[in-house]
Simulated assay, not measured.
Amino acid sequence: MTPAMDRLHLMTVLVAVGDEQSFAGGARRLGMSPPAVTRAIAALEERLGVKLLDRTTRHVRVTEAGRRYLDDARRIIAEVDEADEAAAGTNAEPRGHLAVTAPVLFGKLYVMPGIVDYLARYPAMEVSALLVDRVTNLLEEGLDVGVRIGELPDSSMQAIGVGRVRRMVYAAPAYLERHGVPHSPAELARHTVILASSVSMSPEWKFGRQGQTVSVRVKPRLVVSTNDGAIEAAVLGLGITRLMSYQAARHVETGQLVPLLRDYEPEAVPISVVHRDGRRGSARLRSFIDLIVARLRADQALNG
């Protein structure tokens, strides 16, 4: 193994351990023995003369110097992969691993079907899906592509718009028959409110009206930690909940939920597919982005 190849190998081991936050996890990912992984990290730290990882009995944490080196290592490995794929030809079948992230419910409803389609099309590919209701840092968390809902302050990412959604309020027909339909945000005070804390613990709900923001404070009778839980409670007729329009779209189609206060809908927010900018972009990344962008743009629930 030449010194350059040896250095690339050590970088690859570091990235695997950093991503898995575990020597054993990094070893499994690379098909190496844990002692071999430990020796590789020790050799890299000795070569650089700096500590890259802090080891405890249960966890591995990247040091500040290690974080900077890890970011550079990911970029270098990605560029080498892109060079290999470019040399193999643009029509080469995508192969390797792709890490994808999206909000939990959006990922379940809209991204996961795309991932299944992608894996069916490209048998040599593997995908890791991180579904979390928080903004992820693609570079720091070793992610290749993500779906973001909302404005994008991070200009270092390449972004492709795929749709727009709104935050709206919903209730089941049975609830509305018993308690009546609210015609203004102020009337929510006399209704049972269901709050999904995964969205916000704030009791203040904001609406739009003729270019103005209308805010009301609600007192939830039920606070639930997931959007799925809030949807289920609303479908069962407990009360009114606030959701992103895509989260309720299928329940509206089946008549289980009814959108309310349509005259007070806030401005729509964008949905974007974001990825780290590569000079060429790997075949596996290009093929996934092409597929997921086409699927999301074609979905009426995201572009109505």
Rank of each mutant, 00 (worst) to 15 (best):
S202R: 09
L139R: 10
I149D: 00
L176Y: 03
I41H: 10
A88F: 04
A87K: 13
L176Q: 02
L285S: 07
F23E: 00
L222Q: 12
R280A: 14
I240K: 00
R39D: 11
R29Y: 05
Y110D: 03
A83K: 14
L152W: 06
T2A: 08
K108N: 01
D84C: 12
P220I: 11
K51Y: 03
L30Q: 08
K206F: 03
A73R: 02
R190M: 11
P3Y: 02
A249N: 00
Y246V: 03
S282W: 04
T57K: 15
V258H: 09
R221N: 04
V132W: 06
Y118W: 11
S245P: 01
R297V: 05
A36D: 07
R295I: 04
V223A: 13
L130P: 01
F23V: 08
G31Q: 11
A189T: 15
A73L: 07
R286G: 03
R295V: 03
T254P: 08
I77R: 14
P94G: 02
D277W: 06
A73P: 01
V214I: 15
A86R: 10
H97T: 05
E265A: 12
T2K: 08
L238A: 10
L105Q: 02
E187I: 11
T63W: 05
R221V: 07
L260E: 02
L257Y: 00
K206D: 05
T56Q: 12
P113I: 11
E151T: 14
A159I: 06
D81K: 14
G239I: 01
R178E: 12
T56I: 11
L14A: 13
S197V: 03
R75L: 14
N137Y: 09
L44D: 01
R134C: 04
T226G: 05
V224H: 12
T226F: 04
P182E: 08
L152P: 00
M1N: 05
S245L: 09
L222K: 11
R121K: 15
L296W: 01
R148F: 05
F288D: 01
L8W: 03
M201Y: 09
A36P: 02
A234Y: 00
A78H: 09
I194Y: 06
T213N: 15
R190V: 10
V293I: 14
P173E: 13
M157Q: 08
L238N: 05
V13F: 03
V145A: 11
V100M: 06
I240A: 00
P103N: 06
G237P: 00
L52C: 05
E140R: 14
I240M: 06
P203L: 09
Y175K: 09
M157R: 07
R209K: 10
L109I: 15
V145W: 01
E82H: 07
P153N: 04
L139A: 13
F207P: 00
E232S: 15
R217Q: 15
A230F: 02
H275Y: 07
V17C: 09
Y175G: 00
D144Y: 08
R55I: 10
G161Q: 11
Y264V: 03
V116G: 09
G208P: 00
V162M: 05
V274E: 01
G281E: 10
R217I: 14
E253V: 10
Q212H: 10
H59L: 14
V145H: 06
P220A: 13
S215N: 04
V60Q: 01
V132I: 15
G89E: 07
A24S: 15
V116C: 06
F106N: 06
H191W: 07
A83Y: 09
E45T: 02
P94S: 04
V269I: 15
R121I: 12
S197W: 03
M5P: 01
